[in-house]
């Protein structure tokens, strides 16, 4: 590919040298594309470029296409592999009474975190789900809303009105007591 481009290069190099003004004036006509960084498609000077294949999505600043830039692409593909915490500690029974063990696996809103984020194996994820649901039933963990010890310091939106989550307004007197 590069061999085909080489004989054309001197001719193309001579053209802008001979008539820079008409070339500048005529440049919009042949290409018709706005100039941008990276190799031009209309057959512009190829002094800087390598072969066209590596042009790709953009110059040095671009994040790249779905695969990522080839130079730094490996960093995007490989993450530090997470290990199942329960397998490491050889825990065969996840106690629902210990909310401090379960809280790191629960999001701020009370939802169970997926195992692709926590690195839990499938077996322990099932047992973890059972333990969290039991803890929810006995009010050790919330069904929805702010989870104590889940790592968030943001105040809950409905903290003044109680743990109603997304259920909207309530009809009773709130904290004003019973009548």
């Amino acid at each position: 590919m590069s061999e085909e481009q080489k004989p054309a290069a001197p001719a193309e190099a001579a053209a802008p040298e001979a008539a820079p003004a008409p070339a500048a004036a005529a440049s919009p006509a042949p290409t018709g594309t706005p100039s941008h960084g990276g190799p031009s498609r209309g057959g512009g000077p190829r002094r800087e470029g390598g072969p066209r294949r590596e042009g790709g999505p953009g110059g040095p600043g671009g994040p790249g296409g779905p695969g990522g830039p080839r130079r730094g692409g490996k960093r995007q593909f490989f993450r530090k592999k997470k290990v199942c915490k329960f397998c490491t500690e050889k825990m065969d029974y996840i106690d629902y009474k210990k909310a401090e063990i379960l809280a790191p696996f629960v999001q701020e809103r009370g939802k169970i975190m997926p195992r692709r984020l926590t690195g839990t194996c499938s077996r322990h994820q099932r047992w973890l789900g059972v333990a969290i649901k039991r803890a929810r039933n006995i009010a050790l963990l919330p069904f929805a809303g702010h989870t104590p010890g889940a790592g968030s310091s943001a105040p809950h939106r409905f903290s003044e009105r109680g743990d109603r989550g997304d259920r909207g307004e309530r009809g009773d007197r709130g904290d004003r007591g019973d009548r």
Partner: peptide, 17 residues
């Protein structure tokens, strides 16, 4: 202990196991 949600309008309760 503090309850994770209100139960019978209470935010705390005495747990017995």
């Amino acid at each position: 202990k503090k309850l994770a949600y209100r139960v019978a309008k209470h935010r705390e309760g005495i747990f017995v196991y």
